[in-house]
Write a protein that binds this DNA or RNA. Structure first.
Lengths: 214, 214
DNA sequence: GTCTATAATGTGATAGAC
DNA sequence: GTCTATCACATTATAGAC
């Protein structure tokens, strides 16, 4: 078989594995399931990736850059602070909606269960730059506070709040749907409208309104 | 053996099972693990609960009332709206901090993976009252908007925002710790300070400031 | 490289002695 | 009720033919 077809099989496997791992979690995933959905046999999975663990780590390594870079990248752009928040929220929700709404829950679950092995793999993707995202965020805030545009507040609390409001609707979907009485078809629209809501909600809370009078 | 000791064994098993299931998830849990941590043997688990599935559901049923009632109950109290939000946030964070910080992620993960079986068990705990929590919340908001204390906004968006800010720090702990560069010992303090932050953050965003002049 | 067959191990569940 | 021993089956992993 040609090298191209070899490459192709390897890619098919890891692509299907990604889908199944994200859907079922590590311990919930069966090698047989991956083989079936890929239209191949189990032995090939081991031929290319040796073990379930190694296949899983291969999936994670491939996933990591796609996971954080597009979103965290926004923080490094040269933008006015409030516009940066807006772009960050929109980018995050758009990315996850299109790519895979189950991604955040998958990443969090596996980080929790197997922290020592998984976090190092993911961290390389987060910490690819010299200055950390949270430090960039802190400096932005400091500048705006000095300029009198922003209330003083803890930068980590604000950062986590924005993150929470954007991510949790994906992670907590089944819980939210029950508590807030959503029908299945309503939820996607809710998420789309949420982009605008979050930005308004946040800016309204943190911005210092400049009045005409002194 | 006396009926009391019988009762005691049964209770030990379900107590340990709760701990292990919450920690490892359903598919990650081994009956052997539960037996070991309970200081008993596997056969006893089956003697009392027949199967892993049935033990899991027994755990869920026992857990459900403790899970939602204390927090959602706040929504039904006769309180000014802003005080209700404050009490809700404090109650939620205090409850989870004391009880088990892994509870939210556990509930969400299992709801996601096995919706049809699990949601009915949990819903009984959520929907124990005639009027749903979200409907109570909506009416409270409507009243405040008419009174001129509150900006007009979608009640579900606000509800989910408050929920997100309170729950996500527990669910997304490993992710947040990486992104915001927390040390282990800092995080508990961060969560405690978060109660006050969320309340201020929310009220500052939604409240209509009444000025002296007209 | 890909397959079938099978080994090796893990895991839920049960039988039967005490 | 509680234990040890064991079954039955699922699942990861490998051997070997093509």
């Amino acid at each position: 078989m040609s090298p191209e077809e070899k490459k192709r099989t390897e890619e098919i496997i890891i692509g299907v594995a990604e889908k199944v791992f994200i859907r079922d979690g590590f311990s919930g995933t069966r090698m047989q399931t991956i083989a079936d959905e890929a239209g191949l046999n189990k032995a090939l999975l081991h031929y290319y990736y040796r073990s379930k663990q190694k296949l899983f780590y291969a999936v994670l390594k491939r996933l990591a850059p796609k996971l954080f870079a597009p979103v965290l990248g926004v923080l490094y752009e040269e933008l006015p602070f409030f516009e940066k928040i807006e772009k960050f929220v929109h980018r995050y929700i758009d990315e996850i909606s299109q790519k895979n709404p189950n991604l955040p829950l998958f990443v969090i679950s596996e980080m929790e269960k197997n922290a020592d092995d998984i976090i190092p793999i993911l961290v390389r993707a987060i910490d690819s730059r010299e200055i950390s995202p949270i430090e960039i965020f802190r400096r932005d805030m400091e500048r705006e506070i000095k300029a009198g545009n922003l209330r003083e507040m803890d930068h980590k609390q604000l950062f986590v709040s924005i993150l929470s409001m954007a991510i949790f609707p994906f992670v907590g979907r089944p819980l939210i749907m029950q508590l807030a009485r959503f029908q299945n078809h309503e939820y996607d629209l809710f998420i789309q409208e949420r982009k605008k809501f979050i930005v308004e909600f946040v800016i309204n809370s943190i911005k210092i309104q400049k009045t005409g009078v002194e």
